[in-house]
Simulated assay, not measured.
Amino acid sequence: MKGCLCIHGFTGEPWEVEPIAESLRKQKDWLVYAPTLPGHGPNGDLRQVTYQEWLYMVEVATEELLNRCDEVYVIGFSMGGLLACYIAAKYPIKKLVLLNAAAYYLNPSMLMDSIKEMVHTQITGESSPDQMVDLYRYKVIHTPMHALRQFMTAVKKIRPYIRHVTTPVLIIQGERDALVPRRSSEFLFKNIAAEEKHIYYLKDGRHMICHGFEQSQLLGYIHDFFMEAQDREDVLDEVSST
């Protein structure tokens, strides 16, 4: 059996990576975990949580998958990408996927575009279909400073582990991500020690990269990376039907 741990981002929930988790669950002999990180979710409280609790949860999930499965894969989105790097540096992971992984954060130019969009919405009552407007509004209003400090500490503490990642890695970055800049993916690609590493950029990809217009392309990259050559044709047929 193959196992996969899907890790969502800071202030997020498992729905952020759900399209990938569901597509893998449709495959034969896959066990997929997509846990909610401590302090997150509808009943979570980010005011008291620490980054160590996030690390502990993903370690426990990884160890359980390693006990139950022959091979374990890890997918991390945004902050979850940093947690995934930490796991890959410490455990015998088969393959690693990083999606808009936050080795760095806040893309200033895209942030300004989104702020302008928010101001336009408040003045005119009109809104273009830009998911980032609501995302920024939510983060500004609801994210406790304590949690933000924990996030920044996690990035700082985990970044040194990146050089110890030798697991084959696939990095995918949305070029229109307003939270995680392109230099984050470039840093990861340069510093991860794996001999096998791939990087792709999605031209119209925003931060919620799993839910964008290029979702099929994203899923295709991941499944192609995960599967053995003889399985790829069947898997990609399955992905295209989702």
Rank of each mutant, 00 (worst) to 15 (best):
Y161R: 04
T11F: 09
T50R: 03
R163C: 02
M132P: 00
R159M: 14
T124E: 11
G220T: 15
D237T: 08
M208N: 11
E22N: 11
E18P: 01
H142A: 05
R159N: 11
L5Y: 04
K139S: 04
P168D: 08
A193D: 11
I7D: 06
A61T: 03
S78G: 13
N43W: 06
R68Q: 12
E13P: 00
L82Q: 14
I162T: 13
V140M: 14
T36Q: 07
F187K: 06
Y73T: 02
V169S: 15
Y73F: 15
P92S: 02
G205Q: 08
A102N: 11
I172L: 07
F225W: 13
Q215D: 03
A229L: 10
I192S: 07
A193N: 10
M110C: 07
F225H: 06
P160L: 11
Y201L: 14
P14K: 07
Q217L: 15
H40W: 08
P160C: 13
V165L: 08
H40A: 04
I141R: 14
M79R: 03
G80Y: 08
Y73I: 05
E18V: 00
Y161N: 04
Y51A: 01
P35K: 01
Q52A: 10
A84C: 09
R149E: 12
W54S: 01
K190A: 15
W54E: 00
G125T: 06
G44Y: 02
A84F: 01
P168F: 06
D231K: 07
L24M: 12
A61M: 13
F151D: 05
E175T: 09
I123P: 00
I222N: 05
L5D: 02
Q217D: 09
L236H: 12
V74A: 09
V239N: 01
I115E: 03
E214Y: 08
D204N: 15
Q150G: 03
S184M: 11
G212D: 15
E64T: 14
I162N: 07
K94S: 14
Y73R: 06
S185Y: 10
I75T: 10
K156W: 10
I199V: 13
E238C: 05
L179A: 14
T242E: 06
